[in-house]
Amino acid sequence: MEVLQLLISGISQGCVYGLIAMGFVLIYKATEMVNFAQGDMMMLGAYLAYTWINIAGMPFVLGVVATIVSLAIVGVLIERILLRPMIGEPPFAVLMITIGLGFMLRAFAGAVWGTETKAVSNPFSGNVIRLGDISIGYENMAIILGTVILCALLFAFFRFTRLGIAMQAASQNQLAAYYVGIPVKRIYSLVWAMSAALAAVAGVLVAPISLVEPVMGFIGVKAFAAAIVGGFGSLPGAIIGGLIVGIAEQFAGLYLPPGFADTTAYAILLIMLFLRPEGLFATMQKKKV
């Protein structure tokens, strides 16, 4: 029973990693940039949820929608103002910009909302489902369900909508996408909006089980490890990678000496890089020069 209990909390933690990892992957696949501020975007999402729900007094569902929309707008602005002028610059310069963006967001959150921890009111906290010996908190259920729904939506979007297919086209061959009349730059803005929306959902879902504070975005580093384990460039891979890291962490926390839980993600990453450097779900083709 203990194993099952750990498995469920591992899955819900893994879903959080997976959501952030999908944000990494979306942006990387479309624009070949790595947004190291993805974790901090999630942090901003949690603070925005706090603002809309606790300060502005919106009902929970409306507050979540407001959070998603406002963070998506922030995502578009970041792309337009910071990243678009960097098209054609060396990847290292872009990387530094997104790392710097992370610092800025953390400082911004500290300055606006203060550094003491906040809690977002939500309908989940305190409620528990009991199935025999195991108990599942509503907040964990919400994370798992939310992730499943988001994955289904993303799958349907990329599989069946013309915009989703155009987005795939733009990520597979940028120049050819231009030649068939796809407005690639607008697609990039949209990708940033989607990735920010994912971060917003992750922020809202993680707020009930974690403290809302400026440094909460650091779990983005573990999510990055999860994305690589999944084969950076594959959305299902990002979720699977997140689940592996999340579950392994829970078990390491119980069975290994204290301190090991926090290093599990990186241990898995190292093992993965030794055994299968391209990740679990490698879809990347070799780039033509």
Binding site: A169, Q172, N173, A176
Partner: peptide, 9 residues
């Protein structure tokens, strides 16, 4: 030149 189709579509 070189077709440049979208390989995974």
């Amino acid at each position: 030149e070189g077709r440049e189709v979208f390989p995974f579509l």
